[in-house]
Design a protein around this nucleic acid. Structure first.
Lengths: 195, 195
DNA sequence: CGACACATGTAACACGTTACATGATTTG
DNA sequence: CAAATCATGTAACGTGTTACATGTGTCG
């Protein structure tokens, strides 16, 4: 879904040709999410099918230019005015993995969390390195790419915090449920209220 | 991709039938990411095609049971021991939207951020409400579902922080670049900020 | 000249989503 | 009995990914 909207948004700025769309997209997102050129063309075909873009002939150098239709402009406007729905967020593989790891017996949740933690830390370091590099290369930092990088950083930091949180909770459950089995269960609600 | 792995992981715990897989998946993730039953069956077919699961006949009530093959067990083990790759994270629609919003002229980034912020805040409140509800209903909180909820909360909080960060940066760029162009343009920027 | 970036496509495939069809069983 | 839930599928479609084919222009 994002690719369609992104191409439309780019065409809102100015009619372009396919290859250019790829270049512009990657320039703005700093190649954080590389976009296959082929997909640009297939997506353009589908957008034309849906009446959102239309061919506008060739430019001076013979490039096949695409422009938005009226419906395409409306679509872009709607996209920019409607917030991204958090009602049905995309499935988070890591959250699913951990949720299953704590329920499926025989999985070492501790090392799973540790491994993930260091992997995410590594990604975080890559981001900060990229950030330094981006700030150094161009005198004026590219705002869009910089914001995308920040987004990745914020998400990675949140992931690490969540992992630490999970580790603590899992450890607490492990140490707390073992002694619970033998003695009477009087204080069940007391212990739950503690967390 | 997550669905395939999730079904395999569930079958690692115990052989099950299709409908049961849906139920178990949603129980663990608290219906945060609803899973269409139909997809369970199509995915099972594809997993069988790939030699990861195999039919194991019917149980007492006539349900079609599926179990992991040896390759399926390996796949699960690999999934749980390999961290989720952050090298190519899934495209973040919000980050893309904002990156394009700041580069495409005529987009009111301020209200875009504000709208998104309140939408995400709303989602966050839903999560905390769900959290209270989950803790209240069952005496013993379901760990998996609780961790998933925490994940959503952490992500939403990070998103809000990022949005605030973006707002500040965008505003700074606006106030710092505007006087450079021409002092005469006061009114237009006032109007932009207003709407 | 040979390698590489530019430029446009196409075919095949994987995954996910929706909608529909069908029937058994349970429950108010 | 009617409605809801349980249970198993299938067909069609949308989006995204990969790989391939093809040709032009540029630069060392």
């Amino acid at each position: 879904m994002s690719v369609k909207q992104a191409l439309l948004a780019l065409l809102e700025q100015e009619p372009m040709y396919g290859y250019q769309l790829r270049t512009e997209f990657e320039a703005r997102t700093g190649s954080a999410w590389p976009l296959n050129v082929g997909q640009v063309y297939t997506t353009l075909t589908r957008l034309e099918r849906d009446g959102l873009v239309e061919p506008a002939g060739a430019d001076d150098e013979g490039h096949e230019i695409w422009r938005l239709t009226a419906a395409g402009h409306d679509e872009v406007a709607a996209w920019f005015t409607t917030p991204v729905a958090r009602t049905q967020p995309p499935r988070d593989e890591l959250a699913i993995k951990l949720a299953l790891a704590v329920t499926v017996p025989g999985v070492d949740v501790g090392t799973l969390i540790q491994r993930q933690r260091s992997a995410t830390m590594g990604a975080l370091q890559d981001y900060t390195r990229l950030k330094r590099q981006a700030d150094a290369s161009t005198g004026r930092t590219d705002l869009a790419w910089s914001l995308v990088l920040d987004s990745l950083v914020f998400a990675a930091e949140a992931e690490i915090r969540w992992l630490d949180h999970c580790e603590a909770r899992v450890r607490r459950v492990a140490t707390e449920s073992t002694p619970l089995i033998a003695p009477a269960r009087f204080e069940r609600d007391e212990q739950e209220a503690g967390r």
